[in-house]
Write a protein that binds this DNA or RNA. Structure first.
Length: 737
DNA sequence: AGCACGCCGACT
DNA sequence: GTCGGCGTGCTC
């Protein structure tokens, strides 16, 4: 016994004092974990390290702050490895910290978003190359001759490059190497993209475009943090304006990030960039090959890539020296991430810029109401581009009152629209019909017994798809072959399709114009390749009438399109979403903006049952200011009840079903009359839109019973820390700005 | 998040 | 008698 205690004492006194640092690991712990730093290893806050976590090795970031004294020293494990790459700098760490606090997410998850490149943390390996030694083997064949001719300049070649360039097989080069004609050299890996040249092809701007760009450049010249919103109609040249801001930032030696909704990150955009800057930007999006992703990450962190065009996750790349963020299509809901860490990349871009002290430019033809409010309040600087440039006129938009001009029985197109299509195609121009509904008909029922086809998994309606001869659930993906008998009463051939989808509209169009070429554009017909081919074909004039879903709204230009018909402008206006009107306005503006870029006169016809609706009025008048005023007022009125009752509860859940389970539990637990809004953190700014310091609560809890108890207690006592559930209260993000 | 442990229902 | 469902707990 005595010996034992002596042993313990000895260990206590003699154990070398290991340096301990906090490390953020990719798991939902509320604080960093502590790890020991082995002798001879140096780390600083921001160092990217590999550490053991349970049975596996994970990537983490050495974090700021003192080590956690409470952790049992026996549990401490050593850092396995420090990666040879630039540590995340102070600004980046502050940003990650802020995002974690604001989105109420575990900091380890947020950090992981910055480390989404499995093997990028060690330097790229050198490329093996060959260089001519000056020695010519005695046996020279014609193939060898060609190789040596090329290599005679003494520059380094890769084996495959040299073989390819001289038109021989790599084994010829191998042979020459064996003979001693080449020595092995190591070359630094080539950059993914050449550095962009800010003065490669300067656009000559004029009129409102020039004024807008001077305005933006003046803001940039002041230096430091700022937010500008470029508000300009489709075709007004917004891109050229922000390209000037990019050029100026590049001249100052800083990196630039262009955030785009994933779908807008097209070859077309990259080419426009290349035309202006002489090389393509680095790309960052979800279907990048792993290898490319790693190289982009690496070269962004070392500063080799100067401009990145990327989807929302590009915001978390570790730029070496970022100096400008552009958020194009800033109103687009694709900037919201709604799993794990909930954030809106547009807002987090503003925060990243604020922390690092550089400008942000938001860009949209139809700004979000939030950004409009921020402009009105003077927080954001508004740059207005009111007109299209050159000969591109805005299309003339008109409403078709469906009560006065009803379609033929069984049809969905009013005679007014049918006539307009006829005139357009007779002139040899194209017409686009927009309907945001895939398939043939959104609902099928039995005429005999009234049975409605419903999804067995999730109870939404099954949508008939005639092209595929299937009925599908658009919610969960369930599908089965289209039946011809009613499963309820067994009656044959008495199933009736209710309402239109794009396929049904195409059928109606073909009936009216049997000798014209009608094409359906819908996301469920083939992959990206086929879609690209079809878009190309349309641009070449190989279709007369195109019937399309939402995907026609984005990016692609159809030069011959002079008529856009909105089959049902009212869709989506009454679905309970507080942003329904805003979304409809944005979507329809985008779709109608597809027409009229040709210099020819172009038209848009919007079929509606509500011609007086503010959205319709805003669209046809071309003046959205009254609409925005009204929307802002509506948000005010819809604002959640005052603090003291529940304001909003942001539920952290694994998936949507689970979140809805929590919502049900909350409604059960709360006394009747209590308003409960369940919002994701990405939605929270909606409730906070006027910048009032309302409180927001988060319940981190996974069990409905806990939630019920929590809600009861909170309604009695007011929000405060409880031991079984973490409650965080934080304030309006605007107070940060 | 992953992963292990542990306790009850249907089957090689 | 085992295989495997997911509820619970743990990782510095």
């Amino acid at each position: 016994m005595k010996d034992d205690s002596r042993l313990v004492m000895t260990e206590l006194f003699d154990a070398p004092k290991r340096r301990v640092v906090p490390v953020l690991v990719p798991m939902p712990a509320p604080t960093p974990y502590s790890y020991a730093v082995p002798d001879g290893v140096t780390v600083t806050p921001g160092s990217i390290v590999q550490v053991p976590l349970g049975p596996r090795q994970v990537v983490g970031v050495v974090w700021d702050g003192p080590e956690d004294q409470t952790v049992n020293p026996k549990k401490l494990r050593d850092i396995t490895k420090v990666f040879d790459c630039p540590p995340l700098d102070q600004n980046m760490r502050s940003f990650l910290h802020w995002v974690a606090a604001y989105t109420l997410s575990p900091p380890g998850y947020v950090a992981r978003m910055a480390l989404r490149a499995p093997a990028a943390f060690d330097p790229e390996p050198m490329i093996e190359g060959l260089r001519f030694t000056g020695y010519k083997p005695e046996r020279i064949t014609p193939a060898r001759e060609r190789v040596l001719e090329l290599a005679a300049d003494g520059l380094s070649w890769t084996k495959s490059g040299l073989a390819h360039a001289s038109g021989v097989s790599p084994s010829v080069v191998d042979g020459l190497t064996k003979q001693g004609a080449f020595e092995q050299v190591f070359l630094p890996p080539p950059p993914l993209v050449a550095p962009p040249d800010p003065d490669y092809m300067v656009h000559r701007l004029a009129g409102p475009q020039l004024e807008a760009s001077q305005d933006i450049l003046a803001t940039l010249a002041k230096g430091g943090f700022s937010v500008s919103l470029i508000d300009g109609v489709t075709g007004s040249g917004k891109t050229e304006v922000y390209f000037e801001a990019i050029a100026e930032t590049l001249r100052r030696g800083k990196q630039v990030l262009i955030l785009l909704p994933e779908i807008a990150l097209t070859a077309n955009f990259l080419e426009r960039f290349q035309d202006r800057f002489g090389s393509k930007p680095g790309e960052w999006h979800s279907d990048l090959a792993t290898r490319t992703r790693e190289r982009v990450w690496r070269q962004v962190s070392t500063g080799d890539i100067r401009v990145v065009a990327g989807a929302r996750s590009a915001l978390f790349l570790p730029f070496e020296d970022l100096g400008l963020i552009i958020v194009d299509e800033e109103h687009d809901p694709a900037f919201k991430q709604e799993d794990r860490v909930f954030y809106n990349a547009r807002d987090m871009a503003v925060v990243r810029a604020r922390i690092s002290g550089f400008p942000v430019i938001l860009v949209s033809a139809t700004p979000s109401v939030e950004s409009q409010v921020n402009c009105n309040a003077g927080r954001y600087h508004l740059v207005h581009l009111p007109t299209r440039f050159a000969d591109a006129a805005m299309p003339d938009l008109h409403l078709v009152d469906m009560r006065r001009h009803p379609p033929e029985r069984g049809g969905f197109l009013s005679p007014v629209l049918v006539r307009a299509i006829g005139k357009t195609v007779e002139r040899g121009e194209q017409a686009l019909l927009f309907l945001n509904r895939r398939g043939y008909a959104p609902l099928t029922l039995c005429r005999v017994c009234g049975h409605r086809f419903q999804c067995p998994q999730c109870s939404s309606w099954l949508v008939e798809h005639r092209f595929r001869n299937q009925i599908q659930c658009h919610q969960c993906g369930y599908n089965e072959p289209t039946p011809n008998a009613c499963p309820e009463c067994g009656t044959l051939d008495h199933l009736v399709a209710c309402g239109p989808g794009v396929e049904r509209i195409a059928e109606e169009v073909e009936k009216h114009f049997p000798d014209k070429r009608t094409l359906v554009l819908s996301s469920d017909l083939g992959g990206v390749k086929r879609l690209r081919l079809e878009l190309e074909a349309i641009a070449q004039g190989e279709a007369d009438i195109v019937v399309g879903t939402q995907l026609v709204a984005k990016g692609h230009n159809f030069p011959l399109m002079t008529l856009v018909g909105i089959v049902d402008a009212d869709i989506g206006l009454s679905n309970g979403d507080p942003r329904a009107a805003e979304r409809t306005f944005q979507l329809l503006s985008q779709v109608t903006g597809r027409a009229g870029r040709t210099g020819r006169k172009s038209h848009g016809l919007l079929q509606t049952f509500q011609p007086q609706h503010p959205v319709m009025q805003a669209l046809v008048s071309g003046d959205a200011s009254a609409f925005y005023e009204r929307e802002i007022g509506e948000r005010e009125r819809a604002a959640l009840p005052p603090y003291g009752r529940l304001v909003s509860i942001i539920v952290s859940a694994d998936n949507r079903a689970e979140a809805e389970g929590h919502a049900r539990a909350l409604r059960l637990a709360a006394p009747s009359g209590t308003d409960i809004a369940i919002l994701g953190p990405a939605e929270a700014p909606l409730a906070l839109i006027r910048g009032r310091h309302r409180f927001r609560l988060l319940v981190h809890g996974r069990r409905s019973s806990d939630m019920q108890g929590f809600v009861r207690a909170m309604l009695q006592n007011g929000p405060k820390e409880r031991k079984s559930i973490q409650v965080q209260v934080d304030v309006d993000p605007q107070s940060f700005l």
